[in-house]
Every structure is written in C-alpha cells, then in structure tokens.
Amino acid sequence: MEDAKQMTEDQIKLLQEKMKQMSPAELAEFQKQQCLFCKIISGAISSKKIYEDQVCLAVLDIAPASIGHLLIIPREHYSIMPQVPDEVLGHIMVIAKRLSQIMLKALRASGTTVFAANGGAAGQRSQHFVLHLIPRKEGDHVLDFPEKIIPKGLVEKVKAAVEGRLFELIGVKRAVSPASLEADSNASGPKNRSSEQPELALAKSKKASRAKPERKDIILSKRKVNSAKANYPKTKVKSTKKNLTKQKEASTANAEDIKLDDIANLFK
C-alpha cells in the first residue's frame, strides 16, 4: 500500500510490466492494494466512520445523494455482489436494516434506499462492492425512475429465460444446505416436492449462517442470526385488517407496539 502511495513514473512502468506477468491470483491481490475502499478499511485513507465490526464497516459517502448517505463496505475485497459469499451478504443486510432504523430516527428520514450497482453499465464506479444506504425524504427525487406495465406474455418469457439458471444457482445450495426442519415444524420436506414451483430448500436462518469454519465473521453472523431469531416476535406486525394471514402466530404484536426505538434496540 505504501508503495502505491509514492510511485515514480519508473515504478509505474515497472509495475505495469509486472502486472502483465502476474497470475490471476496475484493480479487480484494487486488490485486490492490499489483499491480505494481497501485503503479506507486499512485506515490509509481517512473516512467518517459510523459503524464497524469484523465483517464490514459503514462510512459516510463523500459524494452523497443526501445528507447521511452511507456506504456499507465489506472488509474483504469483492469487485461485485455475485462474488460476495452468502454469509457476508446476509450480515451486511442485517447491518443495513439496523442502520436504516437509525437513519429514520436520527435523520428524520421518511424512507431509505438500499442500492447496489454491479458493473459499469449499472453505474458502478468503484472496484470494491459496496451497499449504498441513502436516507430519503418525499420529493427529493433521488433515484426516481419511470416504470412501465409489461404484458403477460413478456412476464412469462422473462420467467422462462432466467428460471433454469436460477434453479441451478440455488439448486447447488439445495444439496449442501440443511433443510429448515428445525426452524419450522410444518416444513414438509421441501426436497421431495415436485410441484411446478420448486420449493427452495433454504434453511430459514442456517442459509445465511451456513458454516465455513475457517472464517470468524461467519461465527459472528451466526450469532447475529440467532439473536435476531430470539427477537423475532417483538418486531412482528399485526394487520388490523380482517384477514390475518397468519392467525397461528400467537405472538403477533400490535402494529402500535412497533416504534423505531424498540426496533433500534436490536442494534448490537
């Protein structure tokens, strides 16, 4: 990192030569050293830190869409979201949710936008995957875009185009991940079902915390998942409308019970 900071032209030339001879692994390592966000994480570049743990940190964006715009940055260098392991992504999602609660309360935002860009065409400007968390107010016109109605035929075409690959992507997990029997007693062996809409055998919480023992952040995220599970009933919302979809949930709390303070209490 220090090398990169004080480079002469000769050194740059030398580096370019070196890069050509690098193996993909070496090149990835080199890109890490050049990455702005990796430097923020290492402290080589200063930032306005809001939150950090073993997996990620959250800093104020230097070119914000609105006041309080945060970037949630995984400590590990991943260029795009598809490279991010499920465990890390699950952890980042939880942090985003908790920080969103904080924003609604502390910045009097009336909403938050969670945003990620994968690839230059999608507007990605950094080589390090980050999740944007943007506090919003009605009428601020941040990330407004028009939507259109598409006919049923096109909906079906899209479904047909992506479902095969999507099943493959999830199907691999199906073989590895344990079924969610522990979490839900009326899970009727999703693996054996042969309906037209295959049930994804994703464990309720194990999915996100599936063990990969050599990483300590996994243990962390597992702990978070467990604690989230324990707190689950408190954040349940009860609809005051007549058709409660889940009457069986005896613990459904009144919507009036949910205040940002309460939700924010989950913040660890």
């Binding site: 969670v114 945003f115 999608a122 919003r136």
Partner: peptide, 21 residues
C-alpha cells in the same frame, strides 16, 4: 439475469418507505 438475459450489469434496489418511492 446477468448470465441469461445478456445484460452488462445489474442493480439491486430496495425502496424502503414512502419517502423512498
């Protein structure tokens, strides 16, 4: 989507709350 629809990238977006559209 990236692999089957010939797209060059994707955005992942959550509009959370009325203020966020």
């Amino acid at each position: 989507i990236f692999e089957t629809l010939g797209s060059q990238g994707t955005n992942v977006l959550i509009r959370n709350g009325l203020g966020a559209g």
